[in-house]
Simulated scan of single mutants.
Amino acid sequence: MASSVFWVSLCVFALALSISSASEDSHVLGYSPSDLHSEPKLLSLFEAWNLKHGKHYTAAQRLEKSRRFHIFRENLMRIDAHNKKEGSTFKLGLTRFADLNQEEFKQSRRLGLKLPVHRLGSLRHHSNRKPAPSSIVNDLAGSVDWRSLGAVTSVKDQGMCGSCWAFSATGAIEGANAIATGSLVSVSEEELVTCSSASGCDGGLMDEAFEWVINNGGIATEETYPYSSYSGISAACNTGLEEQYKSVSIDGYADVTPYSEEALMEAVSKQPVSVAIEASAWDFQLYAEGVYNGTCSSDPYDINHGVLLVGYGSDNGVNYWIVKNSWGSSWGDGGYIRMIRNGSPFGICAIHSLSSYPLKHASTAPAIAAIAES
């Protein structure tokens, strides 16, 4: 018994060493097909995954660890089965959520969009209606990526707080401000979570965040008012900071015409856009790379997550959106996901259903605005 424990521990140590340098370059832990047919290798892989994500279990938590291992193994089998499919445009991997089943993931407060029924009530009645193609779309660039134009901050992590709406809104504000001023400034999600009239970690809407920033006369920077709601517990609003620091302001906001791929393309060609999606599908949870065309719902009544649309493009004839998430860089492709542009009214994961962006007037002629207009 002691020798077998030593052998498993040695395997874990060797595997940890083998991934230590790779983990700097790879955000999602890799696996070998041979791992699926060996219990010691599966255990070693699970231990390496726990190490990568900073998860530790005490002796008293052995039953919980065993449960997590079984879920991890089941997810790995599904990942491998999907990745063996011919013709799939995306791959799955051992993301940071690989030890959660789908129901646990739905309940983990990694989402947080509150469904605005008053705005979505008429969408289903237009599910078969496609708007006339805009002539403006014909004049758009073949691809847009606001990351390369200096209008997108690094990937952030909302943690166990249902604050996706705040991260989506700040991302759009950061982009609008960068384009208008030429300066990329990271702004505070924590201020929105704790000081706005939204429900903090219990969810909210991007438009409500924009309205609060306008009425407040601005928002503090991330450095001034850092995020502290990662655990899901929000502190009270720091009124001193909130009143003193209004570093970035916006002049208004606009909603994108719903159920229109063309309208959304036109909007994101000008700046990053806040969008709502349905993000609780198991293959979205485990997405690693490629152009996602998975099992998420495209019903606008199922949207549950706010993210940031930062561009669009094509890969071998497959059109896609570029989406920045708020689940850290150890999910997806460094925190991003490419989602198929399929021409349907609601779009993949209902991405066409609820989109908006802040308005910011340029006071000078900054470099980013000049690039965007060229």
Rank of each mutant, 00 (worst) to 15 (best):
K156Q: 15
H118L: 09
A281R: 02
W146Q: 00
A198Y: 04
N83T: 10
E208K: 03
A362L: 11
T170S: 07
G252F: 12
F284T: 11
S38M: 06
I19P: 11
H70S: 13
W327S: 00
H361F: 14
R338G: 01
Y320F: 13
P358E: 01
Y225R: 08
F90G: 05
Y259H: 14
R67I: 13
Y312M: 13
V291L: 03
K52E: 14
L42I: 04
S355P: 08
G294L: 03
S274E: 00
V213F: 05
E174L: 12
R119V: 05
T239K: 07
W146H: 01
D255W: 09
N342Q: 13
C201F: 07
P258S: 08
N304L: 01
G159M: 09
A236E: 15
K55R: 15
G334M: 05
S168G: 02
P133M: 13
D35F: 07
L43D: 03
A166L: 03
V268F: 11
H82M: 11
P358W: 07
G217D: 09
A48P: 09
S3V: 14
A254L: 10
G311E: 08
H82Y: 10
V193I: 12
N50Q: 13
L264P: 12
V275K: 00
E86G: 15
S344K: 14
V8Q: 15
I219F: 04
K52N: 05
F72H: 06
C164H: 00
N128E: 12
V187E: 06
P358N: 01
E243H: 07
E86V: 12
W327M: 00
R129A: 15
L45H: 06
W321S: 04
G87A: 05
C349S: 02
S326V: 05
A48T: 14
S154D: 10
F167E: 01
L123Q: 00
M339C: 03
